[in-house]
Simulated assay, not measured.
Amino acid sequence: MIAKISSGKSTAGLIRYLYGPGRANEHTDPHLVASWDGYAPDPGRADDITAARKQLVDDLDLHVKQADRLGRAPKQHVWHCSLRAAPGDRLLDDGEWADIARRVVAATGIAPADDPDGCRWIAVRHAPDHIHIAATKVRGDLRSARHWNDYLTADRELAAIEKEYGLQRVIRGDRTAAKRPHRAEQEKALRNGQAKAARERLRT
C-alpha cells in the first residue's frame, strides 16, 4: 500500500475535487468511510450535494477559522493523504478502509488516538482500490498539528497494515542509499562545464 501526502490552502477546493468526477471521470460513487467524530456530513449520500459539501467544509475549517482570528492559522492548513492498494490486493470494504484511515491519522500525528483535540479529518472513497484522507492541520486547542516526518510514520504504519490485512508487501528502502543531486546542483555543474554534480564527484 502506497501513501502520497501533500499540503494545501483550500479545504473547499480539495472537497470539491474529492466529490467531483475527477480529472478523467475516474471518481465513481464518492462517499465518506470515516471522519473525526463519525458524524460528518457526506455529500456523496446527500440529496443536496452542494449544501452538504459546504457544511462539510465549514465543519472541517472550524478550528482553522478560530485560529485565524488569533493570527495562528498556518497558511498551508490542508493535509491530504491518498492511500492506494496494490493492483493484486483483495478488495477492501468500507469498514477496513475506515480502520486504515484512523490508524494513519493517528500514526502521523494528525489525530492521535484518544486525543480529544486531534485535527478534524475525513476519509473519502471514490474508487475500489483507494481512499483520500483530507484534514485541517489545526487542533481543537488551536495549536498546529505535530506531523513531522508524516510520510515515514505513515509508511511504517502501512507496512504493519499490509502484514495484518494480508496485503501485498511493498518493498521499502532503508534510507541508506546515497542522495541524488538536486536540480540546482545539476544546473550548477552544467554552468561550470562539469559532467557530474559536486556531491557525485566527491563521492567518487
Rank of each mutant, 00 (worst) to 15 (best):
C81L: 14
C81R: 07
S82K: 05
R84T: 12
P87C: 10
P87Y: 07
G88Q: 14
G88I: 02
D89G: 07
D89E: 08
L92I: 03
D93M: 06
D94I: 12
E96H: 03
E96W: 01
E96G: 01
E96S: 09
W97Q: 07
W97K: 08
A98H: 12
D99W: 09
I100F: 01
A101I: 12
R102P: 10
V105D: 00
A106R: 05
A107V: 12
A107S: 15
T108N: 01
G109L: 14
I110A: 04
A111R: 14
A113D: 13
D115R: 07
D115C: 03
D115Y: 04
C119E: 12
R120C: 05
R120S: 05
I122L: 13
A123C: 06
V124Q: 09
R125D: 06
R125Q: 12
H126I: 04
A127W: 02
P128D: 15
P128H: 14
D129R: 15
D129T: 02
H130R: 15
I133Q: 05
A135D: 02
T136G: 06
T136D: 13
V138P: 00
D141R: 07
D141M: 10
H147Q: 09
H147A: 15
N149W: 09
N149P: 00
D150R: 04
D150H: 05
Y151T: 03
R156D: 09
L158M: 15
A159R: 11
E162F: 01
Y165L: 15
G166T: 02
R169K: 14
R169C: 04
V170Y: 00
V170D: 01
I171W: 04
R172K: 14
D174H: 08
D174C: 03
R175N: 13
A177W: 08
A178L: 12
K179F: 02
R180E: 09
R180A: 15
A184M: 06
E185G: 09
E185A: 15
Q186V: 15
